[in-house]
Nucleic acid binder design. Sequence first.
DNA 1: GTCGCGGGTAAGCGATTGCTTACCGTGAGG
DNA 2: CCTCACGGTAAGCAATCGCTTACCCGCGAC
Lengths: 211, 211
Amino acid sequence: MSTTGSNTGGTPGNTTGSTARGAEETRRALLAAAGELFTSAGYDRTSVRAIAERAGVNQSLLFRYFGNKEALFAQVVAAQGLDVLHGGPPEELLERTLRSILHRDGEATGGLFDSALRSAASSEAVDAVRDELGSAYGAAFADLTGEAGGGGEDAALRAELLLGWLLGINLLRNVFRSEAVRSADPDVVVGHVSRAAGALLGAVDSDLCDS
Amino acid sequence: MSTTGSNTGGTPGNTTGSTARGAEETRRALLAAAGELFTSAGYDRTSVRAIAERAGVNQSLLFRYFGNKEALFAQVVAAQGLDVLHGGPPEELLERTLRSILHRDGEATGGLFDSALRSAASSEAVDAVRDELGSAYGAAFADLTGEAGGGGEDAALRAELLLGWLLGINLLRNVFRSEAVRSADPDVVVGHVSRAAGALLGAVDSDLCDS
DNA sequence: GTCGCGGGTAAGCGATTGCTTACCGTGAGG
DNA sequence: CCTCACGGTAAGCAATCGCTTACCCGCGAC
């Protein structure tokens, strides 16, 4: 689409000048803006007007390209789930996740975890969140269970218990800002969590006996 | 306050008949209704109108007796925190909490944990939640840490890590309704959690070395 | 009788929200 | 020229929300 011609900015329906950029770019901007806001404010406290403003477009485009707010949310958390999967090798996911939780500074917000925690009360959001958490973390954590990893008895259950723990740690440290875990040395936290995770997953019993 | 006289129900300002019952009873009804709704729907998705209707009074009474929604929420979670403290001896708190999470049926909701989880995105609610969680669980869990309990190194941190875990388990099982933990035998879950909690709290190291 | 107190109600305000509708400009094709 | 498709905007609808205001009634004291 050509953008030749003078900028008549402000005219209703105006697509000349800097506001017209193509459906893909607009869609991308909306997804990015929504991702940031759903993560920091959650589903209910993120309005479609705020998303559109942040993306630099009119809010009706959100409905044109995504159908409704709920569908946009689902696409945001799906993208956040892919970010988890593409963030590194599965066997490092536990440590990577834990460190990203513990090295969060100030008002910074994360991805899928924060969207999930801040949207827990939103019935429209819950299914997408549960499914993405499962896709992003389920298999990788299940593979950590058993004597030598690779899956063991109750693998899925133990994977979920581990996931719940990480969500809870993130909740207390970065959402509720609870004092002890917030002020603790991250390495100390990693030490305690790793030890207990070992007991939960059954992967490092021999190391535990050395302690 | 006497309720003699005919019931002229429906008249603005009418206090005859069954609607006038005394400040304490009204306050109590509002607290109970708010407790149920904040627990099942969270702060943002609970309207003052819904609370008042559930309590059987006009919504302006909520503002008369509690000042505003935020203050009412703080009183609700304070009461829920007391419920935790009065629910039994501190040394049984871990198991009691875990079982109440795991034996939750259908749409039933709990107390402080559910209010907390479903209000995480509400800035007005977060401070009250954090403080009540700390009061209700902090000391009891800290006393479980160390070789023989009674507190140990990093007691407060480990207590919080344990609290985070329980919150996370409740979140996945009862809010997100994640499949594995939801369908698991509660005793199996208790087994895994107790083993790992033992490693976290340092209470049963010798047992772990036997495995 | 009046007045004040306390408990109660309905109505309404200003703001916000997800979503819809009407309209515009541009470029391509007939 | 016209029409259509596409990407874009502003305005507005109906509903909801926390909170406020105006009013009522019963009762006891004076």
